[in-house]
């Protein structure tokens, strides 16, 4: 059993999360295996972000269990959860204002002895535009550049799993398919596990192999593989505004 459990990086069981009195996530269960990319697809306001916030401990769940690498992290404070090896790319990107691109990256650096480890140079080699703007205030970058910085910053922590909240939101399709999608695929190939929240199912289908289709109140209406979703477009129509 131990070996089977260890394969699951993230396990969520019967999660219930509230904002004040409003019961947002009502009994969510899901899991993510090591080296897998999984997506959560759902319309606006169903509770995708809240799910990520629950995992991170930013909005601790009132009920249910969250396990990371087999360890119960429910209601841990965020910094402790993150140190289990989580990289977070929030929907708002949260690039620190008044702080340069380089400092944004430095702040997140958690050096790792491994050869393939992420470093400033490695981030710059994937996002050359960040290098040319390394002294610029991060919050004055364009939306696309900020997204690259947010992803680069998450990678600087050398995580084992990345949580990405709608990384394609507000970006030109060209940028999504030529920059964001390739870096995610690269991460996946180099051994990272991904949990991707998206409304852009085209990208989610290319990156992730399994999908949780989330309906209102954070209830998983259906799970599907990319092949199933591609074969049956109605599922997508049903769960996403297309």
């Amino acid at each position: 059993m131990a070996e089977h459990e260890a394969e699951k990086i993230l396990q969520i069981e019967d999660l219930h999360t509230y904002y004040g009195r409003s019961h947002i996530i009502q009994g969510l269960s899901m899991d993510v295996n090591r080296l897998e990319a999984v997506s959560i697809l759902g319309r606006n306001g169903v509770g995708k972000t809240t799910t990520l916030r629950s995992i991170l401990g930013l909005t601790p769940p009132r009920k249910g269990k969250i396990r990371i690498n087999g360890e119960d992290t429910t209601r841990w404070p965020p910094h402790k959860v993150v140190r289990k090896g989580i990289g977070y790319v929030p929907a708002e990107r949260h690039i620190f204002p008044g702080i340069s691109v380089e400092e944004n990256l430095k702040l997140a650096a958690k050096p790792s002895g491994e050869e393939e480890a992420w470093s400033m140079e490695k981030v710059y080699s994937h996002f050359p535009v960040l290098k040319t703007r390394n002294r610029q205030d991060g919050s004055t970058l364009s939306g696309g550049e900020q997204q690259m910085l947010a992803i680069g910053r998450a990678l600087m922590g050398n995580p084992v799993i990345m949580l990405l909240d709608e990384p394609s939101q507000g970006l030109a399709p060209l940028l999504v398919y030529e920059v964001i999608q390739p870096i995610l695929l690269f991460c996946l190939q180099s051994g990272l596990t991904l949990l991707l929240v998206e409304q852009n199912h085209r990208m989610a289908l290319k990156v992730a192999s399994r999908h949780y289709l989330m309906g209102i109140k954070g209830k998983v209406a259906q799970t599907a593989t990319s092949d199933q979703l591609m074969a049956d477009q109605d599922i997508i129509k049903q769960h996403l505004a297309v």
């Binding site: 991170l56 930013l58 404070p77 965020p78 910094h79 993150v82 140190r83 977070y88 929030p90 949260h94 620190f96 702040l107 997140a108 958690k110 910053r153 922590g157």
Partner: peptide, 8 residues
């Protein structure tokens, strides 16, 4: 919030 999400 983002600072704590960087493990600080």
């Amino acid at each position: 919030e983002m600072v704590s999400c960087m493990g600080i």
